[in-house]
Nucleic acid binder design. Structure first.
Lengths: 334, 334
DNA sequence: CTGTTAGCGCTTTCAT
DNA sequence: ATGAAAGCGCTAACAG
């Protein structure tokens, strides 16, 4: 089913058919309706490959992400989709599963596909930076969402980690906490920023109230909390690096017969699971959907101005309390 | 950067360059190395659009999904990716957010893109069926994962809902439960199958031990559990339609001072959140990753045999208990 | 207003 | 073993 067949059937030239489809040239009503009829008769659909080849535009943007299973990242995906689809672009998902060869293959593919733009959420590993460089060098607009600090050569969308952490701890203090523990992740620049915010908020910084895991998982939260508990120091608040860590911490606290929120105030980060806990806790919500939207906006914006120096957009995390939390988890199977 | 420039630089014809790249014709070592060198020098990458146009193959398969945020669906995505990438195909994500126009736009797009295959997870609404029909009519191989029963005209990948439900209830009974309550979803064929399995397992079927929500959410589980509790009938086990429902049910039970698992044995379905609960419960795990893999396999298989009548593949749900559950939730931020 | 035609970059006979 | 050239389906000057 080609444009030529449509043209023949309608008794016009291919140029006319093209003009009708793209509505970019004046065509008499007479011919237009004949063409439209032929298109319907034949159930014709323009071939995107040919169109892209001829125009040099693919109308696709790629989203590179380490793990689509992560709720934050799938929310970001949604945000990207929302604005991309609004501009008639489609989004190609490149989920690398934290695997180097996979990441590299995807970037190769992105380069071959002549994708119009890329949103990138990577890790702090060097490879992420290298791959971003390859994309940028190829002249493809790229926005890095929640990128590590070292990615200043590219448009970035960040959240106010330090400030948010400071706010979170301050809120706990205002709610009556005298000593807030901090559960972080070593080797994470994000966690480091939050630690700074924490230090900013506490009047005196006691290292024995902090503990660090290898990652933002339940297990890391559990272990870190145990570590602090075993030190025997007093505390009445806990600020965890992620909701999953908070959940792990809650389990550890429970084993030590500390009650939430009676004995201990718990605060998570990212608001992915806070409302599902037995004793719902507060959490600083990462505006993941908006991050996605903003990242896509930045990509489109960059498409029209390739010269401007790299930009940084900072979005605000916001507190979500047990009261405010909607318990309506979305889960539909069919 | 075109194949012609590479050819000129290497002092050969474009046909030779093409042959070197695709390794499908004999080329002397001499020329091959000159070509490869030129490719490196120019950092040349073949243009996928042109290639696809010339060959009629796009090496992409699309995954249509109502909501990528749903952990089950993102697991399926991973499975699809795994096999697709293994065959050098890429996966395009079409997340419709349960929105009709979006779904339609995506299918239009799939048709224009001349995608090589489609994996479809839809709802039980008529539109899903209609869109699947459009795709199939266009001659594109399509596998429906967890599709409603009415989609027999297409390759399907299902799970043994009825049998799994029967097993789940039987397990509860073997663990000492005398009366198991059932929390389902009205208007869901999946839930209906599970209800049948439930009925199969219980010796006497008491409708007052069942309740149905509008969806598989926390809230629905909470409300349904409340409904049963308010009837005052005795029960010592609960089989919920999803882990989220189970979590909601747990909250309701807690409010009525019923302890898990001391007073009540709780069983979820899908194993998405069971291990995160305060009192971890059992759950029938949906093999989502395998569903994705199988669906993709079926698509590839269908690509090579378009005549064979539609197939149905059934995968087994399996029990995951609190003991077996790994508490290592995956959650990495950066 | 409409049609002719030359590409877009790659593959693939078919000669040589 | 290599190259010339004819497409793949569409767009966009350019002519009329």
């Amino acid at each position: 089913m080609t444009i030529r067949e449509v043209a023949e059937r309608a008794g016009v030239s291919v140029a006319t058919v093209s003009a009708v489809i793209n509505e970019n040239k004046y065509v008499s009503d007479e011919l237009r309706s004949r063409v439209l009829q032929a298109i319907r008769d034949l159930d014709y659909r323009p071939n995107r490959w040919a169109k892209s080849l001829a125009t040099g535009k693919g109308y696709t943007i790629a989203y590179v992400v380490p793990d689509i299973t992560n709720p934050i990242f799938s929310q970001i995906t949604k945000g990207i989709q929302e604005v991309a689809n609004g501009q008639n672009y489609s989004v190609i998902l490149c989920s690398t599963n934290f695997d180097s060869p996979t990441l590299q293959r995807y970037v190769d593919w992105i380069l071959e596909m002549r994708v119009d733009g890329v949103v990138f959420t990577g890790s702090h590993h060097q490879q992420s930076l290298d791959e971003m460089i390859r994309i940028v060098k190829a002249g493809i607009p790229l926005a890095a969402a929640m990128a590590p600090g070292s990615a200043e050569f590219v448009d970035r969308i960040l959240i106010n980690d330090q400030e948010a952490a400071c706010q979170a701890v301050t809120i706990l203090q205002n709610q009556g906490c005298h000593a807030v523990a901090f559960l972080g992740v070593s080797e994470s620049t994000t966690s480091l920023k939050r630690l700074r915010g924490y230090q900013e908020a506490v009047t005196v910084y006691s290292p024995e109230l902090t503990a660090f895991g290898a990652d933002f998982t339940w297990q890391d939260g559990y272990t870190a909390m145990q570590a602090i508990l075993s030190r025997g120091c007093l505390f009445d608040g806990v600020f965890a690096g992620s909701d999953l860590m908070a959940l792990g911490a809650a389990a550890a606290l429970r084993e030590h017969s500390r009650r939430i929120p009676d004995d201990i105030q718990l605060m998570g980060f990212d608001n992915t699971y806070a409302h599902l806990a037995d004793s719902p806790f507060q959490s600083m919500a990462i505006p993941a959907f908006d991050i996605g939207k903003t990242a896509a906006d930045v990509v489109f914006w960059r498409m029209n101005d390739r010269q401007r120096p790299p930009t940084t957009t900072t979005l605000q995390a916001r507190l979500v309390g047990p009261a405010a939390a909607s318990r309506k988890g979305e889960f539909q199977q069919q």
